[in-house]
Simulated assay, not measured.
Amino acid sequence: MSLNLSQPKRKNAISLTPLIDVVFILLLFFMLTSSFVPWRIIDTPLSVATDKPKDIAEQENLILTLKSNNNQVWFEGGAIYFADQARFEQLVMDHNNGVFMIKAEVGVTLQTLLHLADQLKLHGAKSVSIANAFAMTAESK
């Protein structure tokens, strides 16, 4: 009797185990290297709702103009530097019930605009408007 030492023929199938291992390693890599940061939102507590809305016609509109990013603002023909805290405090005290409207010319950054709004709010300004600060002018269109 002859001895049959040959192995039975096995089906050639692709094993999924290494593929699953690679997928899990990639998943782990992307989960650990990704940063899930929420959307960065600029919190502007400039338009906080008041208990009793005033008529806009009753309020004094004060226009502050930012002409460049050199940390100064123009008000009634004169420049006020952001570092001059006493001047900002006096301005807000003199016009406590007024609406401070910030206008920015072309080239002024949003950071400078928000820095000015922060200065006004820190010194007690109740109403600060930046709604149309970067409005297009007829010559810039």
Results as ranks from 00 to 15, higher is better:
44 T>R: 15
30 F>E: 08
46 L>I: 09
49 A>N: 06
96 N>E: 12
60 E>R: 04
15 S>Y: 07
73 V>W: 06
32 L>G: 08
78 G>D: 10
127 S>V: 02
29 F>I: 14
111 Q>G: 11
4 N>C: 10
17 T>M: 04
106 V>E: 14
141 K>Q: 08
71 N>P: 00
77 G>R: 01
139 E>T: 05
2 S>N: 14
50 T>D: 11
76 E>N: 10
53 P>C: 02
4 N>Y: 15
63 I>R: 08
110 L>R: 15
78 G>F: 05
74 W>D: 05
19 L>E: 07
60 E>T: 13
37 V>K: 10
139 E>V: 10
36 F>S: 04
130 I>Y: 03
123 H>F: 04
21 D>L: 11
68 S>T: 13
29 F>P: 03
116 L>N: 06
111 Q>N: 12
95 H>W: 03
96 N>I: 00
25 I>P: 00
135 A>Y: 01
99 V>T: 14
51 D>V: 15
72 Q>A: 08
140 S>L: 06
66 L>C: 10
57 A>N: 12
90 Q>E: 14
64 L>Q: 09
105 E>L: 13
3 L>T: 13
57 A>R: 13
122 L>D: 06
69 N>M: 08
120 L>C: 05
113 L>P: 07
140 S>H: 02
60 E>S: 05
22 V>Q: 14
81 Y>W: 01
62 L>V: 12
15 S>D: 15
48 V>Q: 14
74 W>Y: 09
107 G>V: 07
115 H>Q: 13
110 L>W: 07
12 N>S: 10
112 T>R: 05
92 V>G: 01
105 E>N: 13
97 N>W: 03
86 A>T: 07
74 W>S: 09
141 K>W: 08
89 E>V: 00
6 S>T: 15
15 S>H: 10
40 R>F: 12
68 S>M: 07
8 P>R: 15
104 A>F: 05
113 L>K: 11
36 F>Q: 11
125 A>H: 04
18 P>M: 06
108 V>M: 06
68 S>V: 03
88 F>W: 09
116 L>P: 11
124 G>Y: 03
48 V>N: 12
14 I>V: 13
97 N>A: 06
41 I>P: 03
87 R>P: 01
14 I>N: 03
119 Q>S: 08
79 A>N: 01
76 E>W: 00
76 E>H: 02
118 D>F: 11
13 A>F: 13
36 F>M: 08
140 S>I: 12
47 S>G: 08
32 L>C: 07
75 F>L: 02
129 S>E: 11
135 A>I: 03
7 Q>T: 15
83 A>N: 09
97 N>Y: 08
5 L>E: 12
139 E>D: 11
84 D>P: 02
75 F>E: 02
41 I>T: 12
84 D>S: 02
36 F>P: 00
14 I>M: 07
12 N>W: 09
3 L>R: 14
100 F>H: 10
137 T>M: 08
4 N>H: 15
61 N>V: 05
21 D>K: 06
138 A>Y: 01
41 I>Y: 10
19 L>D: 00
88 F>E: 04
51 D>P: 08
43 D>L: 15
